[in-house]
Write a protein that binds this DNA or RNA. Structure first.
Length: 571
RNA sequence: GUGCCUGUAGCUCAGUGGAUAGAGCGCUUGCCUACGGAGCAAGAUGUCGGGGGUUCGAAUCCCUCCAGGCACGCCA
């Protein structure tokens, strides 16, 4: 289903064209039309300021233009009336019978409700998380994970075919240190002489990996080369990472190893192409990318004096690879700490002769955990470091998804642990899920009592239900806008708004009453309406990667977690 | 110092050049033997950080100043 603003814009555009055709308005290029629900209900259901927008082009007073547009409006099933208001707004009223009938559309569409087709036939790739497998995921990383995964969900809802991808390097210096750390712990566990690396990873998870290796391989790895430990450590950590991510419904389609870019010669090809195109030069024993030629403030090293590439070079080769795969849209999700490098990589792609305009970058600011009104410091050195699993154990997976999503990526986030833990109405997670639970409760109770919605007459629905339906029908435009602007928080804000509208309606508009028997026809219409509401809430929760429970379970009070004082991390 | 992000109600935050600036929490006052009270109704609260500008119209766009965060590597 197309967003209503798109439908309205088509109608108004047609009206302008009609007026121009019969000479009522002079000919001028029709600008982009923005038709949205106004803030105040007396201004109609959808409002257009087109007369104000084109007053100069049309060289007429806005009120007069508005009248002309209204007189030339083509018929549309969803429009009941168009009113003119000073200084020149056109306020549309939705056809209430059409609105009520949308209940049937929602029920027929089911879990694909509000599916759009703008992206049909197009392929999108979303890259997110992309942490190297050196340790558990940090809460900062998972913010990007939730944002990226939600964008991917929204792109699917727009009709795109989406690849969710994780890019990693398990061959770098950090991985060598990790391998040496695991080897040392393994040998230690067997009582063999070992030397723990100076900057080694001290986290408890290293001991756990070593213990697993000792259990599986006994002492047969005691002479194994470092490469073997690197491979085993990488596998083991990925196993844990994937499990952690799965707990918050993050499942990637592809894991892309940086190593493959070297093995397949893509890195060498990139160097050769940059040289050939005059974008690379040698200086002081290093190879530089002449990014200033494309507007960068200074040139960047791509191969160090030591002969090793900097991270930029494989990143360029990787992005070239993405574009070679023919995606129509590529989305990169990075934390603010990587903000400066993203444009450099795109300049590299440009230097290779590609058009990077299909690449969209989402940069998100830092995450700070707040508890008792105070920031909880996440120093990696002191080991007071909160990782994803710990956070999920503490507040629950749904709360992690929601809170990480609900703030604009541009906002430095305060993750309020007390609020996320709370199981009351103040917690938006419960407020939204409770709307779904209440719909499910109505379905259960009516089934028990044999109340049916067969042959429901939807014209019996009242103003409360229709107002809520109108709000539900804003979902397509919220999805479209979230994708167009790469602002996935819009869906979270909208879901909370909708839940806020739902609860008072639930209270007033009853299907079952112990005091007075509702006429069966009225009960049928209302039941059908709540069935549709349940579908919509389920869809919104699914888009956010959250569960849509039929019954609320109080979560057990989490056991106090023993502090893992040795935990450390580095990326 | 330079670049990016941010500054909106007591708090946490939404806000797409449109009409009288929004939500949740908190606060005040009531209600509630009914589909799960994780509820309902009403109310108070704002120099949209300051100052200029563009526009018929600015929280939104431009300039400038102030305050905070992040980044400024031949680390990733």
């Amino acid at each position: 289903m197309k967003p209503l603003p798109v439908e309205f814009a088509a109608v108004v555009r047609q009206a302008l064209a009609n007026a121009q055709a019969d000479g009522s308005l002079p000919t001028f290029p029709i600008p982009e039309l923005k038709i949205d629900p106004p803030k105040r209900p007396e201004h109609g259901d959808y409002a257009s300021a087109v007369a104000l927008q084109v007053q100069k082009l049309a060289s007429k007073p806005p009120m007069q233009i508005a009248e002309i547009v209204r007189a030339h409006l083509p018929a549309a099933p969803f429009i009941a009336a168009a009113e003119i208001a000073a200084p020149g707004f056109i306020n549309f009223r939705l056809n209430q019978a059409w609105l009520a009938a949308q209940v049937e559309y929602i029920l027929a569409a089911g879990d694909r409700v509000f599916q759009q087709d703008d992206g049909a036939g197009k392929r999108a790739q979303v890259e997110y998380v992309s942490a190297n497998p050196t340790g558990p995921l940090s809460v900062h990383r998972i913010r990007g994970g939730v944002l990226g995964d939600t964008i991917a969900n929204l792109l699917v809802a727009m009709g795109y075919s989406v690849t969710r991808e994780y890019y990693y390097n398990n061959a770098g210096q950090q991985m060598n240190i990790l391998a040496a750390s695991v080897q040392a712990r393994y040998l230690e566990m067997l009582g063999l002489p070992n030397s723990f690396p100076e900057k080694g990873y001290k986290g408890q998870y290293i001991r756990m990996i070593a213990a697993v290796l000792a259990a599986i391989y006994s002492d047969t790895l005691s002479d194994a080369p470092m490469e073997r430990f690197r491979q085993l450590a990488s596998e083991s950590i990925f196993y844990r990472l994937k499990n952690s991510m799965r707990r918050v419904n993050i499942v990637h389609d592809e894991f892309f190893p940086e190593q493959s870019l070297y093995e397949e010669g893509a890195v060498e090809e990139t160097i050769a192409a940059l040289r050939e195109r005059g974008f690379a030069y040698e200086q002081e024993g290093a190879l530089w990318f002449k990014s200033t030629a494309l507007g960068d403030e200074k040139d960047r090293v791509i191969v160090k004096r030591s002969g090793e590439p900097t991270y930029r070079l494989p990143d360029m080769a990787y992005h070239k690879n993405k574009l070679d795969r023919g995606f129509d849209l590529v989305v990169d999700v990075f934390g603010a700490d990587h903000a400066a490098t993203a444009p450099q990589v795109l300049l590299g792609v440009k230097a290779l002769g590609y058009d990077p305009s299909c690449v969209r970058t989402i940069i998100h600011q830092m995450v700070e955990l707040v508890e008792g009104g105070e920031a909880r410091r996440m120093s990696t050195r002191r080991g007071d470091f909160v990782e994803l699993d710990e956070l999920i154990d503490d507040v629950g997976a749904d709360a992690v998804r929601y809170f990480m999503l609900a703030q604009s990526p541009n906002t430095a986030m305060n993750f309020d642990l007390d609020l996320a833990r709370s199981q009351g109405d103040e917690n938006p997670v419960y407020r939204i899920q409770n709307a779904h639970v209440r719909c499910a409760g109505i379905l259960r109770r009516t089934a028990e009592r044999g109340i049916s919605d067969a042959n429901a007459d939807l014209t019996l629905l009242g103003g409360d239900e229709l107002a809520l339906l109108k709000k539900m029908l804003e979902t397509p435009e919220v999805i479209a806008r979230a994708v167009a602007e790469m602002q996935p928080q819009a869906i979270a804000i909208f879901a909370l708004d909708l839940a806020g509208m739902f609860h008072p309606v639930y209270d007033r508009v009853r299907v079952i009453s112990d005091q007075e028997e509702l006429p069966p026809a009225m009960a049928a219409a209302r039941l059908r309406f709540y069935k549709a509401a349940k579908v919509v809430f389920a869809r919104l929760l699914a888009l956010m990667g959250m569960s849509a429970p039929d019954e609320m379970e109080r979560r057990a009070k989490p056991e106090p977690q023993p502090a893992d004082a040795e935990t450390s991390a580095s990326e």
